[in-house]
Design a protein around this nucleic acid. Structure first.
Lengths: 151, 151
DNA sequence: GTCGAACCTGAACAAAGGTTCAAGTCAAGC
DNA sequence: GCTTGACTTGAACCTTTGTTCAGGTTCGAC
């Protein structure tokens, strides 16, 4: 096994940056935030295993979806320390994001419909509007002075 | 007309904050950013006309949709200086946001589908993924070393 | 053994969208 | 006319997601 030419060669930060398209400064930042890990050489330089490429890609793809880094970190934290992520892991992670995206799409659709209703009804009745008053605090607090446009 | 009890009473910043639910600090910030305007008393305190309530509500609703303040400012800047906004104005503004929201919903749906495809296809083939490589820079640069997961 | 490129760290800066604070001024009720 | 709460300002601070810079170290090739 050790005689095979597949020596999992480690990457420097520059190589990882070049291959992933992510600037080295961002990779250091991700490490500070606990999203990726690195081994250090005797001279304190970072070395990355090949699995890190895939993790960085996952981070970028997730982030591109609008997922905050903290959420990505929480998911990546489930990865076993040195092991390469399993297929099951990626599938579960993607299901997380899928649910997240669906929720976000639904929310946007609801907001669009409400906004249209607010503006389009002819009376400009913002005062009942869930957009202006998110979380429906209005109803919970009674007919007090917090009401917008008490007209 | 002047004997009517409907004297368009001006609001202090505290009153506007109380009625709109928006903190006074945010109202001052909005003014600095050019989103709302105020008259000043002899003693330099802010006074707001009643139309400002509606403008603030519009700002909050728009912002709640995720529209950046600069875009909201650009739309509100179309309002005539002292005049109350017309119905036409609100309708046109809402059409703007509607288009914006629809575009955002579509984009999220596309991303969700791509992400699912990436993860779910069984080969974990991120390398062709538009999420990992947005803007398709990969294809434009040829088969160089920028490719993720050149496996 | 020497040279330059790549790497290290911490600190400062950026943009968006504000909040909080200190120190001082205004408005209004009694 | 005094007191008190509301208001004024600018400056500093906050979060998120990084970039840039200064000053110093290490790696690898010759």
């Amino acid at each position: 096994m050790s005689s095979l030419p597949v020596e999992a060669k480690e990457l420097t930060i520059g190589e990882l940056a070049g291959r992933s398209g992510v600037p080295a400064s961002a990779l250091r930042f991700y490490e500070r935030q606990g999203l990726i890990r690195s081994r250090r050489t005797a001279g304190n330089q970072r070395r990355y295993g090949r699995e890190t490429l895939r993790q960085v890609a996952f981070v970028r793809a997730s982030h591109h979806l609008g997922i905050p880094l903290t959420a990505i970190r929480d998911v990546l934290a489930l990865l076993p320390e040195g092991a390469a992520p399993t297929r099951e892991f990626w599938v579960r992670a993607s299901e997380c994001w899928n649910a997240e995206l669906n929720a976000r799409i639904e929310r946007l659709e609801r907001m669009r419909d409400r906004f249209t209703e607010c503006i389009g009804c002819g009376c400009l009745s913002f005062e009942q509007c869930a957009l202006v008053n998110p979380g429906d605090k209005l109803g919970q607090e009674g007919p007090g002075p917090r009401r917008l446009f008490s007209s």
